[in-house]
Amino acid sequence: MTRAILDAKKAKGLRWDQIAGEIGMAPVWTATACLGEASATEEIAQKITAVLDLGDDVADALQECPLKGQWMDKTIPSDPLLYRFYEILSVFGPGVKQCIHEEFGDGIMSAIDFTIDVEREQHPKGDRVKIVMNGKFLPYVRW
């Protein structure tokens, strides 16, 4: 599925934001689903395959509930961009955790009720990558 989608995307010269605009979804979610890390509804799967001129086999695969995170294979990512997220988590994670606990209490940020957006921010020293994560706070239950 993923190979077929990536090949069609490349052949058509499309970007994720273009595909997302055609199907009415966010670019990061669209890429995530097409890479096999999220499941699509039948309607969304049909829209993706229509944009990319792919068949029902790909639409069916897009609707499967995936086993998420397998690409990491329980190791530190070697790709430089993905490694930076690991580095950010390693360095700033405990501080972010403390700030979340101070603001909300003992709990976590949902990765299920969650959005993430990638934006370009103009800067005199070179354009910046702006990543905005927005997740529902889920308090731990005490019993």
Rank of each mutant, 00 (worst) to 15 (best):
D113A: 12
D53S: 13
P66S: 08
F104P: 07
V91P: 01
K74G: 03
K68G: 05
F114L: 11
R128H: 07
L35M: 13
G105C: 08
I19S: 02
T49I: 07
Q18T: 12
F104S: 03
A31S: 15
Y86N: 09
D127V: 04
L82R: 09
E119M: 08
R84E: 07
V118H: 10
S110Q: 02
I116M: 09
V96C: 03
L82S: 12
A59P: 06
R84C: 11
G105Q: 10
A59K: 02
P124M: 00
Y83M: 07
E37L: 09
M109F: 04
I108D: 06
A40Q: 07
E42S: 09
D53K: 12
S39Y: 07
I76A: 03
A40F: 01
I116R: 02
R128C: 05
G93V: 00
M109D: 00
F114V: 07
A111F: 12
W71L: 11
A31Q: 15
D117Y: 03
I19N: 02
D113N: 14
L35Q: 11
I112P: 00
D73C: 10
T49N: 04
S78K: 08
A40G: 06
K68P: 03
Y83W: 05
I23Y: 00
D56L: 09
V58Y: 01
E119V: 04
I48N: 06
S39M: 11
S90A: 08
F92V: 12
L89W: 11
E87C: 03
V96Q: 01
G105L: 03
A61W: 05
Y86E: 10
G95A: 14
K68E: 02
I112H: 02
I19V: 12
V96K: 01
D73M: 06
V51Y: 10
D79Q: 08
I100N: 12
Y83H: 12
A61L: 08
Q63F: 00
G24W: 15
W71P: 08
I44R: 12
R128E: 08
